[in-house]
Nucleic acid binder design. Structure first.
Length: 506
RNA sequence: GGCCCGUUCGUCUAAGGGUUAGGACACCACCCUUUCACGGUGGUGAUACGAGUUCGAAUCUCGUACGGGCUACCA
């Protein structure tokens, strides 16, 4: 009888959520839903100096946009709250003290300048950055190096202290990672990480273990950057709650940019979004672009993220969220880091836009992607014409604006060199014909167009490009008679007339 | 520097001892379309290197190289 699957995403509210973060959410969510479990979001805000206003709300807005709603969180409630670590502060101290009492941790009174001095003094060719560990701890000011009286005196004097874990001298710490298999560490090489900070807040290391225990987390997933600190967490589980109760770990491969771990800087540097949604740092007003505002739809975004490091073993690449839940398995998550490819990302989005119904596309486009002066009554027809030509929602504007507003400039270079009197006369006659046409639809317009052409001994193909330039302004867009259909008689004729003046001008 | 993780086309990846090493994005060509896309067909393009195990290795083992991560009273 295995216990209920409960997974958590534990972001630090220090800014926007980037690709890797959302993928971690996604894999957590998929694993939970696949196994009938719960998905919990816990806010890791133990570093008060890094508090950023609005970041927490942003995280939840992002999850909502992605349709990855938690079962329990600050916003969703649940039986294991509070879901904000700063509000759980009281429960960490007792565990830290228990560790000290049991000899697994100790008080350390070193000031930051003393720590800095140590790192300088012990620095060498062989040891780039000396650690606070079994080699150095007896040379520092802590309850291991000082006498009991000295320690008690320091504590009584309210000297600021931290509690550090005392890493054992010779122990191999192993665990089974769901993605990587057995991973081993030599305890003598791991440093004495701070567990409880001088301000009474826990560090991530203590908080993650205590909270995962108290929230009955069954599987703990996080990015590969956490792998080196895993031995600390494993020891803490062993000391505090029993290794048999420890969740199963999986460390996801990193998402890489052109130069290592993808960073928000890569976005502006290479011209692609890195955050899920736009994020503006309140203090600096520095904007980091988001996939949402760039014109991605949630289905496309989720799909591209899911396949960045995972596949179902077949050649299928387009998955809905429901399909992902059904097919997902941790065993098929890759162990190697994946470079983010913006071209492929856009392809996923395009595939999803093509699958959208007109109504669904309209819903998406109405969230800020409509061109100015658009005509509501024509929207559905226009969407049916141009939807598949949009890779991003932002493409809709340039694909559709000519429907609502006559082009300001015409691509005359594509027309003028081959322009002649015969063509001029054709369009004059076309205007006359279209003015008298009672039936204004694409089929009628096309057959009339071709009939006049043939009567005048002209090839329709040589006339259709000019016609398109007249209506659209450039060499793009859907079928030209469909465009004329939507434009209606008056506007179509007006654009032909206007263009004729330009084309015939010497 | 130390520790940890990793290494199949440019990129994402399939192939878990026997395949002409497959697919997708991107790129190129052709077809379709008298626009541009979409779509279709085809093409260029990869097992990092060296040993070993084996009748046989992309696949197992070891070494080397390379890449990445961590090395805070940040997460």
């Amino acid at each position: 009888m295995s216990k209920k699957v409960r997974v958590r995403f534990a972001p630090s509210p220090t800014g926007g959520l980037h690709l890797g973060g959302v993928r971690t959410v996604l894999y957590n969510y998929l694993f939970a839903k696949k196994n009938g479990g719960d998905f919990i979001v816990r806010i890791e805000d133990t570093d008060q100096s890094r508090y950023v206003a609005g970041a927490e709300e942003y995280i939840f807005d992002t999850l909502k946009w992605c349709r990855l709603e938690p079962d329990e969180s600050v916003q969703h409630g649940g039986e294991y709250g509070p879901y904000r670590q700063s509000e759980r502060k009281a429960s960490y101290l007792q565990y830290a003290e228990r560790l000290v009492k049991d000899g697994y941790a100790y008080y350390a009174f070193d000031t930051s300048s003393e720590l800095e001095k140590m790192r300088n003094d012990f620095k060498s060719e062989q040891n780039h950055t000396p650690q606070y560990d079994l080699h150095t701890r007896l040379k520092m000011r802590n309850s291991l190096s000082l006498t009991e009286e000295e320690v008690n005196k320091l504590l009584a004097d309210k000297t600021p202290y931290v509690i550090r874990i005392k890493m054992p001298e010779q122990e191999t710490i192993s665990f089974n990672d769901m993605i990587r298999g057995e991973v081993h560490f030599d305890s003598s090489l791991v440093d004495d990480k701070v567990l409880l900070k001088a301000d009474g807040m826990p560090t991530y290391h203590l908080a993650v273990v205590v909270d995962d225990y108290q929230m009955k987390i069954s599987h703990a997933f996080r990015g590969e950057e956490w792998l080196p600190s895993a031995p600390v967490h494993i020891l803490l589980w062993k000391y505090l709650f029993g290794i048999e109760n420890m969740p199963q770990w999986a460390h996801f491969p990193l998402i890489l940019g052109p130069n290592g771990k993808l960073s928000k800087r890569d976005g502006s540097k290479y011209g692609f979004p890195v955050f899920a949604m736009n994020w503006m740092y309140p203090k600096t007003n520095e904007l980091t672009e988001g996939f949402k505002e760039k014109g991605f739809i949630p289905q496309g975004f989720i799909n591209l993220l899911a396949l960045l490091g995972w596949n179902d073993g077949t050649e299928k690449e387009i998955f809905s969220l429901e399909e992902l839940i059904e097919k997902f398995s941790m065993e098929r998550v890759h162990s190697a880091g994946a470079h983010f490819d913006y071209d492929k990302a856009k392809w996923y989005n395009h595939e999803w836009i093509k699958q959208l119904s007109i109504a669904d596309f309209r819903l998406q486009i109405e969230k800020g992607f409509l061109p100015e002066n658009h005509d509501e009554s024509k929207l559905d027809k226009i969407i049916s014409l141009v939807k598949d030509r949009c890779t991003l929602l932002t493409d809709f504007t340039e694909q559709s604006s000519f429907f609502f507003k006559a082009p300001e400039t015409l691509d005359t270079d594509s027309v003028k060199p081959k322009w002649n009197d015969a063509k001029q006369l054709f369009f004059v006659e076309l205007i006359r014909n279209y003015e008298l046409t009672l039936q204004w639809d694409a089929t009628t317009l096309e057959s009339n167009f071709k009939e006049i052409a043939s009567v005048n001994g002209l090839k329709p193909g040589e006339l259709m490009l000019p016609f398109r330039i007249m209506l659209v302004g450039g060499k793009f867009g859907p079928g030209v008679f469909d465009i004329a259909d939507v434009l209606r008689k008056e506007e179509t004729i007006s654009r032909i007339k206007k263009a004729l003046d330009i084309f015939s001008a010497k």
